[in-house]
């Protein structure tokens, strides 16, 4: 993750969690907080492949 941010991925866009299959509450909370964080950063404009232009 450090290298990803080092090469210009915004902090917060890439997140890691450890959630057991029994931890449904933690799963929901994590999804909510990740979604919120990423929405706050805005759309990913850099690390995205542009569709190939054909004729």
């Amino acid at each position: 993750m450090n290298l990803m941010e080092h090469m210009g991925i915004e902090p917060g866009r890439l997140q890691f969690s450890w959630i057991s299959s029994a931890e449904s509450t933690k799963f929901v909370e994590t999804v909510k907080s990740v979604t919120q964080a990423v929405k706050a950063i805005g759309p990913n404009t850099t690390y995205k492949k542009n569709p190939v232009k054909v004729a």
Binding site: E5, H6, M7, G8, I9, E10, P11, T46
Partner: peptide
């Protein structure tokens, strides 16, 4: 900044 880093690489 993240933008500068991206551009640098």
């Amino acid at each position: 900044s993240p933008q500068e880093k991206w551009q640098y690489f």
